[in-house]
Amino acid sequence: MQTFVRMLCALSSEVGLEVTVLGVGPHESHGSSVHFSPVLASVRSESEYVRALKKFVRTRKFRVPEESVVLANAEHYSWALRNLHLPTVLLAHGVVAQTLRIRRGRLSALLFRAFIEPRAIKNARRVICVTDRVREYYTRRYHREPEEKFVSMSIGVELGAFEHRPKGSPRQDFAIDEESSIILFVGRLSPEKNVSLFLAACDYLASSGQKFNAVVVGEGPEGDRLAATLSSRPWLRWIPRTSHDQVLDLMAVANVLAITSTYEGLPIVLLEALGSGLPVVSTDVGRARHFLRGSTGVVVEPDPAAFSRALRDALSARLVKRGSIDPAIRTAIDFRNTARSIATILRQVRDEASARPAVIPHAPQRSSDDKLGGVRMR
C-alpha cells in the first residue's frame, strides 16, 4: 500500500487532486499538491496505528477543507473514521478477513467480519475493488447494498520506473554469481505468502542439477525459519531489507519471479514484473490468471513439483526483450490510468455529497485517512 500512496501523490497535481496523507513518519511536510501529517513517528502494529488514528482525529485540531473526501486504504482505517460524517471511498486491496484468517486464525477473521467490515462498507459511498474476485466477495456478502457501490478497478504501477534498468550493480551488491540464473521472490515473509512452497520448489530444482540462485527479498514472522535454512541451501540468498529502487534493479537482472501465495488481493509485485518484462510463475491469486500467458508467465498449482517444473521451464525459455511489453498490458498496468479513474470517483462522490447537505455537515470537520497514506481530496 505504501507504493500505491507514493504513486498517487506523485500524480496528484496531474489529475487535479489536492492530497493530505495521514500516516507514519517523524515530520510534517508540505508540497504543491501534497501535505503529509504524521499520526505517529513510528508504529509496531496495525492495531496500534488504528487506535492512534482514532485518537488523532478526535483530539487534534485538524480542519478539513470544504468538499473533502476521504480515501481509506482499508476497512479498519475507514472504521476508525466512522464518526466524522465525511464522504468516504474505501479502497479494498483484498479481502482483509482472508488474510487475518491465515495470519491470526478464524476468531480474528470472524471478529473483523462481524464488527469492522460491515461498518466500513455501510459508511463508504464507493468501494473500489482491485479485482473482480474482490468485488464478487463484497457484492455477495453485502447484497443489500446497491451493486453500483462496488467498482472494479485495475490498479497499476509507474511504468517510467522500469526504464534504464539496472541503475546499479545488484549482482555485486548482493553477492549473486554473475553467471547464475536468478529466481526472485519478493514479499513480506508472512504465512499467506507461503515462502515454504518457494523453498520446496527450489529444493526440487536443485536436486535435478539446475544451477541458479534463489533470491528472497523481504522480512516478517517467517524470517527466522528462513534464516535457519541458509547454511543448508547454498543457492539461497536472503535480503531482509532493501530499497524499492534496488528491487527493481533485481527484477531487471532476474530470470523469473515466483509468487507462491495462498491468498492475495492484487500482488503489486506481479505488475512490477510485467512492467520489467520479467516472466512470472504464480499460484492462482489476484490477477495472475488474467495476465500470465505465453512469454509473461504461467499460473500453476501450489504443488512443489509442479512449481519446480514451471520454474525450470522459465529458466530454459528464451526471455522476452526487456521493455517489449504488450500494448494491452501496458495500458492495463499504467498507474496514470488508475489515478485518473480514482480522481473521477472522488469527484463523483464529492458532488453526490454536496447534493445531500443533511448528510455532510457544513461546519469544518476533522478528518484522517490511513497509516500507509490515506488520501483526502478537495
Rank of each mutant, 00 (worst) to 15 (best):
F36H: 12
S37M: 11
V43C: 15
R44P: 01
E48K: 04
E48G: 11
Y49Q: 06
R51M: 10
A52S: 15
K54G: 11
F56T: 06
V57S: 08
V57P: 03
V57D: 05
T59Q: 13
R60C: 07
K61C: 13
R63G: 06
E67I: 03
E67P: 00
E67M: 06
E67D: 15
V70K: 01
A72N: 10
E75L: 01
E75C: 11
E75P: 01
L81N: 10
R82Q: 13
H85M: 12
L86K: 05
L86Q: 09
P87C: 07
T88P: 04
T88S: 11
A92K: 02
A92R: 10
T99V: 10
R101Y: 07
R101W: 04
R104P: 00
G105H: 05
S108M: 09
L110R: 12
L111Q: 10
F112A: 01
F112N: 03
R113S: 13
R113Y: 04
A120H: 03
R125M: 05
R125N: 05
R125W: 15
R126L: 02
R126T: 03
V127R: 04
I128V: 15
R135H: 00
Y138E: 00
Y142C: 00
Y142S: 06
H143D: 10
V151E: 02
V151D: 00
S154R: 15
S154W: 09
I155N: 08
E158M: 09
G160W: 00
H164C: 08
H164L: 09
P166A: 05
P166H: 03
G168D: 08
G168Y: 05
S169A: 14
Q172I: 07
Q172L: 13
F174H: 06
A175Q: 11
D177V: 00
D177K: 11
E179R: 12
